[in-house]
Design a protein around this nucleic acid. Structure first.
Lengths: 264, 264
DNA sequence: CAGCAAGTTTTTGCATGCAATCTCCGCGCA
DNA sequence: TGCGCGGAGATTGCATGCAAAAACTTGCTG
């Protein structure tokens, strides 16, 4: 009845549909910690909070349940999912397995060396960033932008490997796994910057990158797979450190959805 | 306690909610080949065909798009997805990787030998079926029920391995992969029965089963992983044969969604 | 005859009403 | 005092109306 609001068509974000906007909003709120794990998400309060009607909210809730951030209650409705530590380890393990498979397929399905141009470029850019970082003349306090840039590059590098695997199925599956908090590689990279021995860890990670590219271009499938798994396994250490440092933990999206085993 | 069915048709299935029933109906229709690949699924015709309103239909369509059987059109609405041969191979490859990981985790995370009781039971029952089958006095024309039973047992066996992997994440991911036509292990088992040398193939498959159990109980993770991958790889041969035999192909759910490369 | 444009029809996306169901709280009874 | 029960409010699932956008059709013009 009432004109909900003046929905200006201009200046809107890239998302045009109500459902899409609601999905992004809700996901953001969940990862930001606006809701407690186990909390029941009723539709009507969300109507007031998001300014859209129940229909797109229901659609978005359904999709979030498919993604795994929510659980469908048997009696109806949705509940914010709580992630145990085991869930995190399992997600990391699964991601490692899938990224390993992607690296192996990338090497097995390589046809022309030219396909690696983009991947090498990312590798070199990452390499340049690492060296600039370790450069003694570089400012000791790393700026936020360089982290964001490293994060994007890292993301692009790993995404390129999946592209080279030439498997839409694998990409889809990996996307689903990465939607779980802490399972996304980029989610934890920022943590590294606050770690002791961060430069060394970064060096190891980038050596993995270098070796993975080498294995792919030499069609060493098993090596590429093992390397990618090991590389993904480094995230576990990041999570472990993050869990001991609340100041770090609070910067990681979805941290509030973790249900700690005993205390805290 | 009141009569819940006031306007619902007589003799509905075990599914109570309209959305659930619609989801099952639509999935069945898709796998049965009631729609052509690429066909646009409009909501209104489905209202007439399924006897429910647009709301549960929209929900079901959305879920099927998440499962991968439908694609969301950029202009809105959903179209029946066409699967290429590469999609099938990729799905089988991904399933093999995940089932391999499940077998490895099952061995790595085994705590008490007693956890294997159920798995050994399935193995022995499968074993008994195989031997009964190869028994010369057994009727040469295998009855349909025994296939159904073998199928259930096979399904239970592999599901038990995933259970032993103790990873909800892995189970979820595997479920998604198996929702693609031809990617489910049980989808293709029936094909074997019509193959030449079916007994030999069955023997190899069951030797895999036996060896996987052995590897798990001996905590030979790498061996279990390799075996499970190899076992899943057998499905590829089944699909290849099925594709050459229309009479076999027509019995496999979802076969009509395959878009053949050149001719029919 | 071809191409474009305007009108028409279909279809989707969203909002909302309604009824069945669930939840929760208070009350009565053993 | 503890427990079952009933009812009122809250909540979900479903159906449907409505408007905007897409797709199709038709007619006009070069």
């Amino acid at each position: 009845m009432q004109s909900t609001e003046s929905k200006s068509k201009s200046g809107n974000s890239a998302e045009v549909s109500q459902t899409g906007r609601t999905l992004l909003n809700l996901r953001g709120m969940l990862l930001r910690g606006d809701f407690q794990p186990g909390e029941r998400l009723s539709e009507l309060p969300l109507v007031a909070r998001l300014g859209v009607s129940r229909t797109p909210i229901r659609l978005a809730l359904d999709r979030l349940a498919h993604e795994g951030l929510l659980e469908a209650s048997p009696t109806g409705g949705f509940v914010v999912r709580a992630f145990s530590l085991e869930d995190i380890w399992d997600a990391l393990e699964t991601r490692g397995v899938l990224e390993g498979a992607a690296a192996r397929l990338a090497s097995e399905r390589l046809e022309h060396d030219s396909e690696l141009v983009q991947l090498r470029e990312y590798r070199d850019e990452l390499d340049a960033m690492i060296h600039a970082e370790s450069d003694p003349e570089h400012l000791a306090v790393p700026d936020f932008d360089s982290y964001a840039r490293y994060l994007d590059l890292n993301e692009a590098f790993h995404s390129e490997i999946v592209t080279l695997a030439k498997s839409a199925m694998l990409r889809r599956t990996l996307e689903q796994v990465k939607s779980i908090p802490f399972a996304s590689p980029s989610a934890m990279v920022y943590v590294r910057s606050k770690l002791p021995r961060a430069p060394q860890i970064l060096a190891v990670a980038h050596e993995h990158h270098r070796a993975i590219v080498e294995a792919i271009e030499r069609k060493q499938g098993a090596r590429a797979e093992a390397l990618a798994r090991e590389h993904a396994g480094m995230s576990r250490y990041n999570v472990e450190v993050a869990l001991t440092e609340p100041s770090i933990l609070s910067t990681v999206p979805g941290a509030s959805l973790i249900r700690m085993p005993a205390a805290v």
